[in-house]
Design a protein around this nucleic acid. Structure first.
Lengths: 305, 305
DNA sequence: GCAAGCCGCTGCAAAAATTGCAGCACTGGA
DNA sequence: TCCAGTGCTGCAATTTTTGCAGCGGCTTGC
């Protein structure tokens, strides 16, 4: 849509932090971009940006404006999508910000399933910790967020919530590698590998441990689940993951997972959500419905808390 | 704002019903307008208008688009207003759709009061029956609606509701011209002048009469309250009005008003409302707050029903 | 302490877009 | 059947936008 180019320009400048960088990203000259910004500011009667020696920053007025700009841009996207939808073409774009846990199995499966029906729909998947995921909704980088144990929920409108008990994972030959729940204190007899505080799994474990006598003494700490898991395969180290992040094939994998007993660690909650008050494009809401029903089918639906 | 000219153009064409008429209203050539419409349609990939021999009409896609267009336009207005507000300039524009009753006294007073504080704010006042008033909110012709006994309330978000008992009005020398409530059957002994069914006063009277043995036999029926009132001054005819439409000066007027007894006619309700879900420009919401408190001070606040 | 590197901004000319005029084809009503 | 009214198009004039080169201001690193 041609007429909202000026809005795109403003958004680009905000994201780039400088007019020249934004111009490069937009494949136009800095001159042109600069003049459009100046023109907008004159129309508005107020500067949108503060000029700094190293670029520009939003002014107070700009802060108000950028909210409007971003909602306009994504709303136009919704309109396009609705119009395309009624002429039978199922196209669109879906951007998702999500926790690591859904990256290896769940999301690839679901997206593939969806694209089988609607090949004209494109996807973008951002791996974001629970705080950054909400921010992505706010600045319209993402349409949906699928996060485990989000922190603040002010701009977040929950579409679905499912329980996710923490599982302990270990290599096949591990002494604890049996079926059924395992007690946390049994795990603690072995070296443990856990993620950093950015992650929901860690925060659930931390709060659970607080009210018990057990102490978490991690042998390995990392911000990469992939690393933790591969490390745990090497020896008797135990790592932790939630069910949605564990391949469903029960015997094919190199490792074994056992739920930690409810009495030790209560289940965490995985949330699917969108920006509060926004009306989603058809493609997005259809995809949200699909993964909602998949999640609800796979896991117990959680009460909002 | 320059960049939403295309949107204004579309809106103008929709309202005018033909490109040439809209072009005239916009003070540009039909050629230019026509080409912009064509360009928009090409960008969208779908016709916005159906071409008729006598003009154009919105297509299905256009119906979706015009909603977006109008909300964009008024949202931009809100942003401008917010930005102007933070730089201390209290300017803006307020459009109100209202029932006749508030036109003679209440609204002029309130607007004058408001403009004394904020002279840079401009007003537009539309006289609309209760159905048209809601429509004016929907198509963004009006920011606020102040209507007596609205019919449908689907797009209408109530900001305040106050009770308005129906009053009987008569000339000074009338046999009924005393203080205190009057019974409806006493009024019926004289010729009565009442408004058409478009009006809330009529519908309140009609429903009240339905459950009694009294029959409404209007001597005069008109869609102009002003006419009815002036007519009633001529002889013993009685007309009806709600308190907000009656000048507060108790003895200055040429006529006398007496509330009709609650047992005969229950009070109607006057609603102040806006378009559901819309966030109003600062000027508008400030004015809404002003008249809300004025109404609440003058009349008993009604429970929503 | 001074040069190098970014930054936003501006004068001027080229390029691109928008606009206006005149005119065409079409339709429904007098 | 004619006429008024509609949307649409080719072409030229006009307006707007863009790009190039360059200026002055500021921070950073040697």
């Amino acid at each position: 849509m041609r007429h909202l180019m000026p809005l795109r320009y403003i958004d680009a400048v905000v994201r780039a932090g400088s007019i020249r960088k934004a111009a490069e990203a937009l494949a136009i000259t800095s001159t042109a971009l600069n003049r459009r910004i100046l023109a907008m500011e004159q129309e508005l009667g107020v500067p949108i940006f503060e000029r700094l020696p190293r670029g520009v920053r939003l002014s107070t007025a700009g802060e108000i404006l950028i909210q409007h700009v971003r909602s306009q841009l994504s709303d136009m996207e919704r309109v396009r999508s609705q119009i395309a939808d009624l002429s039978g073409v199922r196209r669109g774009h879906i951007a998702i910000a999500c926790s690591q846990a859904v990256l290896p199995v769940f999301l690839p499966q679901q997206i593939a399933l969806y694209r089988r029906e609607h090949p004209a729909v494109t996807f973008r998947v951002y791996r974001r910790d629970r705080e950054a995921a909400e921010q992505a909704l706010v600045d319209h980088t993402a349409d949906l967020a699928l996060v485990f144990e989000p922190v603040r929920l002010s701009a977040f409108e929950t579409l679905l919530a499912v329980q996710q008990p923490i599982h302990a994972m270990m290599c096949k030959g591990h002494p604890l590698a049996k079926a059924g729940p395992v007690r946390l204190r049994d795990c603690m007899r072995y070296p443990i590998a856990i993620p950093t505080h950015l992650y929901g799994v860690r925060s659930v474990l931390d709060t659970a441990v607080l009210r018990s006598s057990i102490k978490l003494q991690p042998a390995i700490e990392s911000d990469s689940f992939e690393f933790l898991r591969h490390y745990a395969r090497q020896d008797t180290t135990i790592c932790f993951q939630i069910p949605i992040g564990i391949a469903s094939a029960p015997k094919g994998g190199d490792d074994v997972s056992r739920p930690i007993d409810d009495r030790d660690v209560p289940p965490g909650i995985l949330y699917l959500g969108q920006l509060r008050g926004r009306s989603l494009p058809v493609a997005v809401s259809r995809f949200a419905a699909q993964i909602s029903s998949a999640l609800a089918r796979m896991f117990e639906e959680a009460q909002p808390r």
